[in-house]
Design a binder for these strands. Structure first.
Length: 309
DNA sequence: CGCGAGACCTGATAGC
DNA sequence: TGCTATCAGGTCTCGC
């Protein structure tokens, strides 16, 4: 489940390793991630190009070349970009191989193939991102932006956060994390949030993403890896990858049992004490009586405060 | 247009 | 042990 922090970790890794490298060979192994783009466009638009910058927009990774073209990669559910040497064995679900002028290779591997690979011009990029929401670390993202874009919306706030059109980069993990930090129930209607709730939500989005980036993202089941094939070290506070209904999971803030619900066929985990359905428009997240954070209750899932930076 | 459900896909896991 | 069913989720498409 690569979301913004996992894509940003990859962007940082790539920027330290492939800037200034030339794409000697561009070989496509599967076409289903092209989402309709002509397969010949990939080698034709990228071959011989020099990578001059690595960018990111929401969950999209952007590799800009001096040919005026950009390789766009969306990691979908299970996509990784791995740095390999020429002789390394070929991965089972290899989609795209980029060989650099020093012989190293970048390989886009994605078992499920839910992601996207495209070679685009600047103009095509602009069109692609026309309806994408603002960057959570950009100047436009503020409580006022949330107020404007959530106004009148009756869908659950979690679905609106995941929609990418209001703010870009949140998936299931960091939507749950943001709402938990903000003390807002995932099913609250978007337009019903009060000013302090909007401020808390803004803060929750930014800090949950920042926490994860510091620890190089979240990895479950060894599925989401960095450029070197290593897992991320972030441990979400509420999100459960495979929630076992027979087990109870304590809230890291108040210790009460986390609840599970389904929103548009997506699993959501939240704390019904810390994230009540009724409006709680105070400046800070209410803590239930006697509900001090219980580190032991949090179990092996370390909180961000307990991880040495 | 807003909203929600279904499709796409494979691997991990639960249950038999 | 080995088979089958189920679940997971990012984004697109479709129907209401």
């Amino acid at each position: 489940m690569p979301e913004l922090p996992e894509v940003e970790t990859l962007r940082q890794d790539l920027a330290g390793v492939v800037l200034g490298a030339r794409l000697e060979r561009v070989e496509l192994f599967q076409t289903r991630m092209l989402r309709g783009q002509d397969p010949t466009a990939i080698p034709e638009r990228l071959s011989g190009g020099l990578i001059h910058s690595i960018g990111r927009r929401g969950k999209y990774l952007l590799m800009h070349t001096d040919r005026g073209t950009t390789l766009l990669i969306h990691r979908g559910m299970s996509g990784n970009v791995l740095l390999r040497d020429q002789g390394d064995p070929i991965e089972r679900h290899l989609h795209l191989l980029l060989e650099l002028d020093d012989g190293r290779q970048l390989r886009v591997v994605d078992p499920r193939g839910f992601g996207e690979i495209k070679a685009l011009t600047d103009q095509e990029l602009t069109i692609k991102f026309a309806t994408l929401g603002v960057e959570p670390f950009g100047p436009e993202f503020c409580p006022g932006h949330l107020r404007e874009r959530l106004a009148g919306r009756r869908a659950p706030v979690k679905m609106l956060l995941m929609g990418q059109q209001i703010v870009a980069g949140l998936g299931n993990i960091y939507s749950d994390e943001s709402l938990w930090m903000a003390g807002i129930h995932p099913k609250r209607e978007g337009g019903s949030l009060g000013p302090h709730e909007l401020s808390r939500l803004h803060e929750g989005v930014v800090s949950s993403l920042q926490d994860a980036i510091i620890h190089r993202g979240t990895t479950f089941d060894g599925a989401v890896l960095d450029l070197y094939g290593q897992p991320g070290g972030h441990h979400p506070q509420v999100f459960q990858p495979r929630h076992d209904p027979k087990q109870t999971y304590p809230c890291a803030r108040c210790g009460s049992a986390l609840q599970r619900l389904r929103l548009s066929n997506r699993g959501s985990t939240f704390c019904s004490k810390c994230q009540p359905m009724k409006k709680t428009d105070s400046r800070r997240v209410a803590r239930p009586l006697g509900g001090r954070a219980d580190r032991r209750a949090a179990g092996p899932r370390a909180t961000s405060q307990t991880v040495a930076l």
